[in-house]
Write a protein that binds this DNA or RNA. Structure first.
Lengths: 191, 191
DNA sequence: AATCGAAACTAACAAATGTTAGTTTTTAAA
DNA sequence: TTTAAAAACTAACATTTGTTAGTTTCGATT
């Protein structure tokens, strides 16, 4: 069980929401402060800097993606099953952290110290994804189309989920997983 | 035949590239000036304001999308054929204006005067898309999955093309169209 | 050689921004 | 009730930012 939410956690949550809406660079410390009903200077009792806020928001979630992808990648499943698990992973994270996902997608280039590390995480993730698709094609589970196109197309959809999920609350995660699996996977699956 | 490129056109092109890389808010007029080897104040001999630059970059391309979508929508084709044309449309624009596409995708919310107009264009585009999918389901051309999910999934991929096309110059537009059509459409098509 | 518009320059501005230093208030435990 | 940490405040700072005003330079046409 995690501790009750600290003031710092609140600031991070509010910041992620604002960053997601207008982008990191467009949001000022005074914007964040106003959203919390305090003055900008007060933020610095809790956080180190604006840049640090960005780092916290992005790196935590990027690490979660990479770790869980590695688990999927090294699990005993068919390639198709692994793709299904990847879809579930993205849906799960997009449900829990829609704002952070937006910041990850659009503001990663404003990381400074941690930019290189972030890119390593992303590359690791994408390499795993590519390998799974390649295995699926080799084993005959999937049709033999250009690997890059399959990866790109599925990943584009999954990365955009954060934009879409908050608008469609009627749709339960399980329902969404089922439908998305059908749309994304049937097109590349052999019978 | 269009006139030779004016200085203003050059500025727009350079700005679009910079905006795409770091976002509208993160780019200063001095950044743009430096990329053109002039001083920031000199930019104002050619353009009205930074905001105007954003408007020019986004609105022109948003209008092109909407117009060409309307042509496709009102053409005499099956729904599947219309989807193929939409894919070609996105590939075509992403090839010609990869930077503008990036700005359109990520910085539309920084439009001020023209924000409402932009949203109208986008809604018109999406409504047409949705109608085409609905017709396809009704006519039995496409499988009867959740319309929203089909629209979301295809559109997410098409909207991300700008990120991907510049990296894969080996792939010819025709080749890309063929592959993408297969991956995106086969999964939702009835036999 | 003179002229004129296009396109560059220098200098400066007011406002906005991230951050700091130092101080006061709030909260809750002792 | 005292105390001490947590969390807020005011005031100010050095920079950065978009933009304007006025001037000079460049290139082509007369």
């Amino acid at each position: 069980m995690s501790k009750t939410e600290t003031r710092k956690d609140e600031i991070i949550k509010v910041s992620a929401k604002l960053f997601k809406e207008k982008g990191y660079s467009a949001i000022t410390m005074r914007d964040i402060a106003k959203a919390m009903n305090i003055k900008a200077a007060s933020l610095y009792n809790h956080i180190k800097s604006k840049q640090d806020l960005l780092k916290i928001i992005i790196i935590s979630i990027a690490e979660e993606f990479t770790i869980r992808m590695q688990e999927i990648s090294s699990s005993e499943s068919t390639s198709i099953e692994k793709l299904q698990k990847i879809i579930s992973l993205h849906i799960d994270i997009a449900y829990h952290y829609p704002y952070r996902m937006g910041v990850l997608n659009n503001d990663w280039m404003h990381l400074e110290e941690e930019l290189e590390y972030y890119l390593e995480l992303r590359n690791s993730y994408e390499d795993n994804f590519r390998s799974i698709v390649e295995s699926g094609i080799e084993s005959g589970e999937m049709i033999d189309t250009n690997t890059e196109i399959i990866v790109f197309s599925i990943l584009s959809t999954l990365r955009s989920l954060y934009l879409w999920i908050p608008k469609k609350e009627a749709l339960k995660p399980e329902e969404l997983t089922k439908n998305l699996t059908q749309v994304l996977i049937s097109g590349i699956q052999n019978d």
